[in-house]
């Protein structure tokens, strides 16, 4: 456990150094490195015939892509003069980090990985657009889009290294994590694009004619989360040699669901 944690901390330090751009960071939020994604990536690469340097490089690349895409989520539609510079630099920061990931792979002559990641980025943006439009007919389609948004980059890496068995597990874990976040945000703020999409599906296909209130929607999601909990557990158990850090994190997420199911 300690070994994995220190490995992740070390790689995180490298990423933080790489994204350090004093002028950009004066105006935009410090890029957030998703610890879970980094842990999943490092764990999926365990047992591969890669040097530490190669492992670091791949982790750095994946996280740069993720950071680049995540930063662009902060570009809002509302304009204000005070926020103009922030908006401008947020756009450029994402583009700059995209350039850095490409440069990183190009310097390693890794053309196949460039191709693979480009496909993943396309997929993420396809699904971000679908999610933004909120035009889903079924809950399954909505969840599928979230899986693609959250897990496409890691899935491409796993597939590239022949670790296909990790893909459904990563998808389930990252979907569950995102749904828990959406649930928390909704209960706190009362608005959420995810719940708007969910509401539209429930309204049109599952309970036609009836306007859904927030409690019904949260109950509906909780019900789905319980199913996902079982799915995630089964997918984790199907993986061989999963490390204790990943197992611990999964237990933590499953525990979160257990709490509100019991409370509910």
């Amino acid at each position: 456990m300690q070994d994995m944690n220190s490995k992740i901390a070390e790689i995180k330090g490298i990423i933080e150094k790489k994204v350090l751009h004093p002028y950009l960071l004066k105006y935009i939020q410090v890029p957030i490195i998703d610890d879970d994604k980094l842990m999943l990536l490092v764990s999926a690469m365990e047992g591969l015939d890669l040097t530490d340097r190669e492992r670091e490089n791949y982790a750095l690349t994946a996280m740069l892509v993720q950071i680049a895409l995540d930063i662009h989520e902060h570009v809002s539609n509302t304009q204000s003069l005070a926020g103009t510079k922030v908006r401008q630099l947020t756009v450029l920061a994402g583009d700059y980090y995209s350039g850095l990931y490409y440069k990183h792979l190009a310097e390693s002559d890794d053309i196949l990985m460039i191709r693979s990641l480009s496909k993943a980025i396309k997929r993420v943006n396809e699904h971000k657009t679908l999610f933004y439009q909120k035009e889903f007919n079924t809950v399954g389609m909505l969840f599928e889009s979230i899986k693609n948004i959250e897990a496409s980059i890691l899935a491409k890496f796993s597939g590239f290294f022949g670790k296909d068995a990790w893909i459904p597990f990563m998808e389930s874990l990252l979907l569950l994590k995102r749904l828990l976040k959406e649930r928390n945000d909704y209960l706190r703020d009362g608005i959420s694009p995810f719940f708007e999409a969910l509401g539209a599906i429930v309204e049109t296909s599952l309970a036609p004619g009836g306007k859904q209130n927030s409690d019904t929607l949260v109950d509906f999601l909780d019900h789905e989360l319980v199913s996902l909990r079982l799915e995630l557990k089964a997918r984790m158990d199907a993986l061989e040699n999963i490390n204790t850090s990943v197992r611990g994190r999964v237990e933590e997420l499953l525990g979160e669901i257990k709490i509100f199911v019991e409370e509910g």
Binding site: V75, S76, L117, S118, I121, Y132
Partner: peptide, 22 residues
């Protein structure tokens, strides 16, 4: 459309360009 769609479109086209370049 709006800023958000412009961001997704730009990111999509950039990824497409690199894929073609490979």
């Amino acid at each position: 459309w709006d800023n958000r769609i412009a961001m997704y479109t730009g990111d999509y086209i950039l990824a497409l360009s690199l894929e073609v370049m490979t």
